[in-house]
Write a protein that binds this DNA or RNA. Sequence first.
DNA 1: CGATTCTTTGAAAACAGTCAATCTGTGTGG
DNA 2: CCACACAGATTGACTGTTTTCAAAGAATCG
Lengths: 199, 199
Amino acid sequence: MYEVFKAYLDNKISLTEEQHEYIRSRCVVKKLRKKQYLLQEGNHWNNKAFVTKGLLRTYSVDEKGFEHVISFAMENWWAGDREALLSGQPSRFNIDAIEDTEIVFIDKQKFDAICREIPAFGDMVNTILERSFIAFQNRINDSISTPFEERYLNFVQQHPSLAARVPLNMIASYFGITRETLSRIRHKTAKKSLVKSID
Amino acid sequence: MYEVFKAYLDNKISLTEEQHEYIRSRCVVKKLRKKQYLLQEGNHWNNKAFVTKGLLRTYSVDEKGFEHVISFAMENWWAGDREALLSGQPSRFNIDAIEDTEIVFIDKQKFDAICREIPAFGDMVNTILERSFIAFQNRINDSISTPFEERYLNFVQQHPSLAARVPLNMIASYFGITRETLSRIRHKTAKKSLVKSID
DNA sequence: CGATTCTTTGAAAACAGTCAATCTGTGTGG
DNA sequence: CCACACAGATTGACTGTTTTCAAAGAATCG
């Protein structure tokens, strides 16, 4: 499973065999079974985590006990809580496995060392952060400018495998609506596309 | 007005006089009158912009011509379109001045050079990006977990001067609701706090 | 003062949430 | 292999909230 991470790196930057070995030696591989936690609210988070297999969700829990999905992470995505990592404070989020999942884990100190030792790696990490920022900005823009129905369709189109693997109630939560409302939106759009194909 | 930027830098990192002179020599100071554009949709954006005075808003315009406020930037905040800067593509956003505004402008190439020449400056920039990411993540979390009323109260509490200087319809847009709804929320909470103070 | 911009209010319609019941598919143990 | 439990998805009736549209009321600026 480390191979998935290696392939990811090879796709982004070019590394010598020694550099690969150096990075690999700082990594720990972890497995999570479905429903197991990677991180629980109130705990500290001091790692970088790269998903090589499976599917994670990051969510918060409000005072009433309702869960709110902030983000998903599947193969070739990074997961974790940047806020807790940067601040050193206990996390306000939970991360658990929607499917059996495998993760490459790197301790923050070691990760920072890699960034210093291999500048291309550091640059890559920076670009990822920049892109994550842009993705969140676009999500905010969507949330204030685009109706749920259209947002859901875009989501399915842009992330078909996520949409297929994530239960509907979590997708609804991701958009900030109830599962009932999303179910009805789905029903409506299914009819629409049926009408279109008849035309 | 450059002094405001200098004070900001001094507050974040320590720089020698030469370094300050070096940075200053790469900066251009710009003034915008109320309603003037810093950036218009479809144009390229190749700068970093630091607000030393006044107030900017970044917004998108949908197909129906409605404006949607993504963010505000006042004194000691950075403004601009990271997406257009990173991708080199024309911007999808507009930035204009809510008040007469003064800005310190640095060309991207010169900015990157500063980051390389003065590592502390580069680190600072990185931390800002990380914090911006976290701020957006929290905004997304709020948008799916917290009712408008509470979000508005938090906003007023956390950014009283913004709330006072930005017209209500733009704040409503920032939250993705209509100005009428925000007006009514305000009315309701005003009554509540009145009741509380009578108790 | 008059013009413009910003905010508030009211009434009706559209939309989303809640609660409760039902349906569907999956997997487990007997 | 069946029956049952369970998680997930759907539906209906009802309630509550937000939008829309139209009008009018403040506030600000030249």
